[in-house]
Write a protein that binds this DNA or RNA. Structure first.
Length: 422
DNA sequence: ATCGGCTCGCGCAA
DNA sequence: TGCGCGAAGCCGAT
């Protein structure tokens, strides 16, 4: 097993290991999987070094402050991918700028990859005797022995957000990945924006919960079209496509999987106020402010938005998908957000509604990438667009009418229109 | 169907 | 200092 790279390790205190302890405890929060997992690999290094058994504890927290800590840890872990020094301390305000950095340094990240099966390298194998006393002592739940629905019914969390049919966990993530590699990926660059097509990976919730590694997804895709790091083209600096030296599908999928994902983490780590209105670029704040008092033709409150109760059939369908399934199709999520900006009294209220709806209902809510999506609505990573319009100012404008012209929405609307029985 | 204009900021070449 | 370029836009002209 290769050593965990030093730049992926954070020392939290100066204490020496307690040699009398019966085991090394791995507190599995951010990367809830046993494959391609540097954290687990590090725990195994310690277990082997100290000749102690490894105990993996996967906790579940329900109070928001803990969730916030988990979110931040997750963000920091992910950020280590791109903390490869030189120009790395700065903040990137656009994907365009970030790509230059990625293009130059990506090979370094692709060399130091986590092991597929780090548990194979554990010297002391699984000891059943260690488990039962732990379960008793701390009153822990073994979900293989407890009915999940019963457990949820007795849990002290918000039950108004109903469970989604989307299945969590590594196995579901792997099935989804296999299906995507075999089918959706082949039309990815052409169809990913089409709401009625099944061409996007839909892996975001699994990344958010750490159920699958981006490394595993990356390896699956490159093996499917025999791509290797030698394909990276030193030309195309600063260009969106072409520098990976792969198919159009690979170029556009890697732009999502790697460039945009890393950029989102980068922003959350570098900007303490990443979730605040004031973190938007100056030009966006100025133009939104210039139009804060513009007349709004429609205004809805949070409850009306939540219940998909607007005048717009497309918007309601998108919200219904979010409320029911815990996600919105990529393209429609942009339109969905733009309309919230348009139909609220001011952009600060719009932002608070966007964050509430996204974090409450989306399976990938609270993820750095969620914040990329939400803040993009208000101008982050984007540029000014003319002509200047009411409410939006120079913020990129979108309409349901154009969306309906561009795509065949019929199958999507049949599935997700409010009251639809399909 | 395709194109230019609208508009801003970054990196880089000159 | 000027130029190319950009998460997916919109609109009107050709």
């Amino acid at each position: 097993m290769l050593e965990v790279p030093i730049n992926r390790i954070t020392t939290l205190n100066d204490e020496q290991p307690n040699m009398d302890a019966p085991y090394v405890l791995y507190w599995m929060i951010a990367f809830r999987r046993v494959n391609y997992n540097f954290s687990l690999q590090r725990a195994i290094e310690w277990a082997n070094k100290l000749s102690k058994p490894l105990l993996i504890f996967e906790p579940m927290t329900i109070d928001y402050p803990m969730a916030s800590i988990r979110f931040h840890k997750f963000a920091i872990e992910g950020m280590k991918d791109i903390q490869k020094q030189r120009i790395a301390e700065k903040e990137y305000v656009r994907a365009h700028d970030f790509r230059r950095f990625m293009h130059k340094n990506i090979e370094d990240f692709l060399v130091e990859v986590p092991e597929k099966d780090p548990l194979e390298y554990l010297n002391l194998k699984f000891d059943e005797k260690l488990i039962e006393p732990m379960l008793k002592k701390y009153e822990l739940v073994d979900f293989n022995k407890v009915n999940t629905q019963d457990f949820l019914n007795n849990l002290n969390v918000d039950k108004s957000v109903e469970v989604s049919d989307v299945v969590g966990g590594y196995n579901a993530a792997k099935s989804r990945l296999d299906l995507f590699a075999k089918k959706g990926f082949n039309d990815y660059s052409k169809l990913r924006s089409h709401p009625s097509e099944d061409a996007s990976s839909q892996l975001s919730p699994y990344f958010h919960f750490g159920h699958i590694s981006t490394y595993e997804v990356f390896e699956k895709i490159i093996s499917s079209e025999s791509w290797s790091v030698e394909n990276i083209d030193p030309n195309f600096v600063g260009r969106r496509e072409g520098w990976w030296g792969g198919s159009a599908n690979l170029e556009s999928f890697f732009d999502e999987l790697i460039t945009w994902r890393e950029l989102g983490y980068h922003t959350c780590v570098k900007r303490a106020n990443y979730d605040q209105y004031q973190s938007l670029p100056d030009w966006a704040i100025k133009t939104l402010d210039d139009h804060a008092n513009d007349e709004r033709e429609y205004i809805y409150d949070l409850s009306e938005f939540t219940n998909a109760n607007t005048h717009d059939e497309i918007w309601n369908a998108a919200q219904n998908q979010l409320k029911t399934e815990g996600r919105i199709h990529n393209y429609l999520r942009m339109l969905w957000g733009k309309k919230i900006l348009e139909w609220t009294p001011n952009p600060q209220i719009a932002l608070s509604y966007l964050i509430d709806l996204n974090d409450r209902f989306a399976l990938d809510g609270r993820d750095p990438n969620s914040y990329s999506g939400v803040f993009w609505i208000l101008g982050r990573y984007d540029r000014a667009w003319g002509p200047e319009r009411p409410i939006y100012g120079k913020i990129r404008y979108m309409t349901s009418k154009s969306t309906a012209t561009k795509f065949n929405l019929k199958p999507y609307l049949e599935k997700w229109s409010v009251g639809s029985t399909v």
